[in-house]
Amino acid sequence: MNIFRLAGDMTHLFSVLVLLLKIHTIKSCAGISLKTQELYALVFATRYLDIFTDYISLYNTCMKLIFLGSSFSIVWYIRRHKIVRRSYDKEQDTFRHHFLILPCIILALLINEKFTVKEVMWTFSLYLEAVAILPQLVLLQRTRNIDNLTGQYIFLLGAYRSLYILNWIYRYFTEQHYVHWITWISGLVQTLLYADFFYYYFHSWKNNEKLQLPA
């Protein structure tokens, strides 16, 4: 464990807690894409298959349980909660996220580190995580206005993967045999997808104006 990875995990944890807090306190999911949340639940479900078979550390197991619990409860809130679900913008959240899942499955079957069920599912979860934010970014483009908590949520989500990139660089130089091209490339693609959002987020923060994404 290094400071970059710990900071990345904490930022990631904080991003889901910010989202859960927002939905739980104001009983609204306005501006949040259910599709992105479903994709994240799928990412965690396929990545943490080994949660009961391979014990790595208490920290690792606890964090996996928190991420699984929070992502599925966010999906539950938006789908089932009688008040929250009314604020879900079904007409705007139209990204066909099934079109993201299939290519990721095919790519995971073609490019992986080891052709086993667990490894292919793990690789699938990496590819899916890289593109899972797309429905959310499309929704933001459509609804144009971003409320603070949603903006913070996306910023933290992008920041966590950027910190992971620093973690991979650190591990590459400090641990021999630590080479995971698949992880590095999908993590880089994921972070690049946030790049334009970061640009507008930073400028709105600098000029202290409401965050507006261009049409």
Partner: peptide
């Protein structure tokens, strides 16, 4: 070794 096989990152 088994360690690197197991993905130790979240």
């Amino acid at each position: 070794d088994a360690k690197t096989e197991n993905h130790d990152e979240l």
